[in-house]
Simulated scan of single mutants.
Amino acid sequence: MIATHSLAPECYFDEQLFLKEKTEVFEKNWIFVGFSEQLANNHDFITTQIGDKSVVVQNFGGSISALLNVCSHRKATLQTLSNGNRPLVCPYHCWSYKKDGQLSGVPLNRTDFGLDDAGKKALSLRQFALETCGRMLFVRVAKDGPTLSEFLGPYFDILEQISTSFIEPVQQDTFEWNTNWKIACETVLEVYHVTGVHPETFAKFAKAECEINFFDGHSTGNTPLHDEPKKWWNGARKHLKFEKHAYFKEYNHYFIYPNLAIGLTDGSLMSLQTYQPVTAISSKLHFQLRMMSSAENARVSDAVRAAIKANFTEFNKIILNEDKLVAESCQVNMSSNNIPGLLGKCEDRIRHFHSAWREDMQYQQES
């Protein structure tokens, strides 16, 4: 038999496995958290959840730090929004913190707390490893581990080039999926499902074939585009006055383990998605669309720009909803069947993803 077994159904709903993977998969690996331009100004911040840790990444006078987003006083959340601009001050009792996480201000300290410098230092926020790849920001919660360059290997240069090329924001949003985060990831790791799930969308956009490459838990899937979308993008680039990227052609898809997916369309548009676990059977899909920027000083009609952006924004939304529906149907059936699924050769990227997960989790599956 050519096919091999998928992960056991329990891997998609078991609470103990979910608790373990939050530390063994998410806290020990580098996790993409955003772009450097989101933190361009003093006090700019973004927040995220990595495993069990609430994390804030913030600009402190030009220096970027990743810190535990929990006040040391009474454990209130420091920055409550997903992004914004405000000093790192607790909204509950106004304790404030410096870039290294050290406690800097305590109202009524002299009369009610009596904390000296050593006492304040003992209440410092935990600081996490933060590294950049081009304009992309990654955080590692675990104290020890590989550098970001070692973790990404040959993908470091690829991501650096992507992040510095596709810089014009188009859209970003968050969808809630009633499915384990791994099932959500699997929807983008093969083209075998395209005919069944996307007959009127992706099937008319790209061919159901894929050239695959691997490195550690990461993988690439290069899929040729049909002629019609190529013609559409040729016209769109003329209207928007930018050139097709010289390196990225067709539909190039990159998966960075454990939960980052980047799709590039005809060297013009980037779709970036992360799959954040919420519970054992629910997750959040955060996505951004970005495209190549128009030539400097080029005059582009606002109406034309808006119309073109609306076209591929709506296309992206439809595809994500199609994937969501089928992923949620799979999730519903996991707990009623203890027999692992099958992975054909056309699903090698999922097999590779599962292998990395098994290694992190030290998970032994009965055949």
Rank of each mutant, 00 (worst) to 15 (best):
Gly344Ile: 09
Ala261Lys: 05
Ser283His: 05
Asn337His: 13
Ser271Thr: 12
Leu269Gly: 00
Ser282Pro: 08
Gly263Pro: 08
Glu322Cys: 02
His286Cys: 11
His245Trp: 03
Ser293Asp: 14
Lys241Ala: 06
Gly341Ser: 08
Gln331Phe: 00
Ile281Trp: 01
Lys309Phe: 07
Phe312His: 06
Lys317Val: 04
Cys330Asp: 13
Leu285Ile: 10
Met334Leu: 08
Thr313Gln: 14
Tyr257Leu: 10
Ala246Gly: 09
Asn321Tyr: 13
Asn252Asp: 12
Ser294Met: 06
Ala261Phe: 15
His253Val: 09
Ala327Lys: 05
Asn252Trp: 14
Phe255Glu: 02
Glu243Ala: 15
Ala295Thr: 08
Met292Arg: 14
Ser283Pro: 03
Ser282Val: 06
Thr265Leu: 14
Val332Ser: 12
Tyr254Phe: 15
Ala280Thr: 05
Arg351Thr: 04
Ser283Tyr: 02
Tyr251Asn: 14
Asn337Ser: 12
Leu289Cys: 07
Val278Asn: 04
His253Pro: 00
Asn259Met: 13
Leu272His: 04
Ala356Glu: 13
Ser335Leu: 09
Leu260Asp: 03
Glu322Ala: 02
Glu243Phe: 06
Glu314Lys: 12
Asn297Trp: 01
Glu328Trp: 12
Phe255Val: 03
Asn259Ala: 13
Cys330Lys: 11
Asn338Trp: 13
Ile281Glu: 15
Arg349Glu: 06
Glu243Trp: 01
Lys345Glu: 11
Ala280His: 02
Pro277Trp: 03
Cys346Asp: 11
Leu342Trp: 15
Lys249Asn: 11
His245Ser: 11
Lys317Gly: 01
Arg349Asp: 03
Leu325Ser: 12
His245Phe: 04
Arg351Glu: 09
Asn337Thr: 06
Gly341Leu: 09
Leu285Ser: 03
Ala306Pro: 00
Cys330Phe: 15
Glu322Phe: 01
Lys324His: 00
Gly341Arg: 09
Ser294Ile: 01
His286Asp: 10
Ala295Val: 07
Val278Pro: 01
Arg305Met: 06
Thr279Gly: 03
Thr279Gln: 05
Ser282Ala: 10
Val332Cys: 08
Glu314Ile: 13
Thr313Met: 14
Tyr254Leu: 15
Asp302Lys: 15
Asp266Cys: 09
Leu325Ile: 13
Val332Asp: 14
Met334Asp: 03
Lys241Arg: 12
Ile319Glu: 02
Pro277Phe: 04
Arg299Lys: 14
Phe242Glu: 10
Asn252Ser: 12
Arg351Tyr: 10
Ala280Cys: 01
Asn311Asp: 13
Val326Lys: 11
Lys324Tyr: 02
His245Met: 06
Lys324Phe: 04
Tyr247Phe: 11
Asn252His: 10
Leu320Arg: 10
Phe248Met: 07
Ser355Trp: 09
Ile308Phe: 05
Asn259Trp: 05
Ser329Asp: 11
His354Val: 07
Tyr257Phe: 15
Asn311Tyr: 10
Phe312Ser: 02
Asn311Cys: 05
His286Ile: 09
Tyr247His: 15
Lys309Trp: 01
Gly267Arg: 02
Lys241Ile: 05
Met270Cys: 10
Phe255Gln: 04
Phe315Glu: 07
Arg305Phe: 04
Asp323Glu: 08
Asp348Lys: 08
Lys241Asp: 03
Asp323Leu: 08
Ala295Pro: 02
Phe312Met: 02
His352Cys: 11
Ala307Phe: 08
Glu250Gln: 09
Ala303Phe: 07
Ala327Ile: 00
